[in-house]
Design a protein around this nucleic acid. Structure first.
Lengths: 222, 222
DNA sequence: GCAATATTGATAGTATTACTATTATATTTG
DNA sequence: CAAATATAATAGTAATACTATCAATATTGC
């Protein structure tokens, strides 16, 4: 993955001070990814993070309102990254069927490449999205945060792929639901691979989730 | 729904004292459903619940180890209830295709009947499952709790319907994943209907989630 | 009916979390 | 070099998630 063209920008509403603007800020991001992965979101605190980066709670609070917003920031970063991969992956491919297959692979295959984008370890970040991202939207704040546009990137991805599906089969009735249930379902099934393998068919194959969704989506729209 | 034959039993590992064995216990269950729905799981505390039922925190702690286990208890109750509805609904139906359609309706249609089973309001409980149940499994305790058998009922449902799908099409390769992604996806899409309607196709129809999954599943296995 | 036992209520207390506030000390910038 | 800004160090608060103690109240067993 070429990094040169990728410049991910996150809505300034999500931080009090841009973590990209300083060394402490970047440490907050990179170490929070490691710590959330390690401790789980419930076990993760700003105090522990401060200790880990040899800083203080108050400093972290100057960047992010609270840990929920920090997780939201990471989530937005992740989806922006995914969107970039989608756009980049589908560029110059004229066949919509081919583009859909590429998109499905990006969305459902395991992330293994351990090349980190600057200070962000995408493999760990993806793991966090699998394990913790439901906690971002399943709160009493959703509607509020949705209005503020915090979920725009995610919705943009769904809409983009939904359009692609309509291009392939204009008569298919549920393009949005097919896409969002594929994106979120793939994350969910990846969690099941690790924790409920008895509910995964052919769990020994590393591409089982991907195969399932490829089959499912192509059958749905044909 | 006939209540006479339904006797839901929850694994005694999930409580310290059976809430069904006393009046306070039943109040804990019924009021916790109302409060969790109202405040969200994060905002819900044993202190607030104690106040609501005119009891004390210590009394509640004598029934449940903590609020996470209480939510797990409610989740188990919910899935036992769903399993009952599935068994009851499919009884005496010889055609497996017909049985599948019935199961899909039970799993994906909205729960509207407001007739509560003794002290449990199933409509509210279903709402809690939609809004909060991911928080039950997405924790660092999953594997531990899975080993203890806390998710057995859920897995039993998946296996049961997976068998049904194999009966209809023995060549279909992903029966477990199709079933679990349908069950969990339907809950997820119901959440989207309320909070991200722009991602729902034909969201004005009350059966949009159900229609989508009927179409999806039948196309997948045919 | 009364003693023994179990259950609940009332109260207090602790460690941790999720913050906010204050001030001193660096660091950057103009 | 002075002024502005960012950070570190420290302290403090309210709420949460419990644990402990003991008295009051039911329940049951004889």
């Amino acid at each position: 993955m070429k990094k040169l063209f990728l410049n991910i920008t996150i809505s300034p509403d999500l931080y009090l001070k841009n973590p990209e603007s300083s060394e402490v800020g970047k440490k907050i991001i990179s170490k929070s990814i490691v710590l959330i992965d390690e401790l789980g979101f419930e076990g993760f605190t700003f105090k522990k993070l401060a200790k880990e980066i040899s800083s203080t709670e108050s400093t972290i609070y100057r960047y992010f309102e609270n840990k929920h917003i920090l997780l939201l920031y990471l989530t937005c970063w992740y989806w922006s990254w995914v969107e970039y991969k989608l756009v980049f992956g589908m560029i110059n491919i004229s066949s919509p069927e081919e583009r859909l297959k590429i998109a499905l692979n990006i969305l459902t295959k395991p992330i293994t490449e351990d090349e980190s984008f600057f200070h962000i370890n995408e493999v760990l970040l993806h793991q966090i999205i699998v394990n913790e991202s439901t906690k971002v939207i399943y709160t009493k704040e959703v509607d509020n945060e949705n209005e503020k546009g915090y979920y725009t990137v995610y919705k943009q991805i769904v809409n983009r792929l939904s359009d692609l599906i309509k291009e392939i089969n204009p008569d298919y009735k549920y393009p949005h639901m097919l896409v969002s249930s594929t994106i979120d379902g793939a994350l969910h099934q990846k969690y099941f691979v690790d924790h409920f393998p008895s509910l995964i068919d052919n769990s020994q194959s590393k591409d089982c989730v991907s195969s399932f969704y490829n089959d499912l989506v192509l059958n749905a729209i044909k």
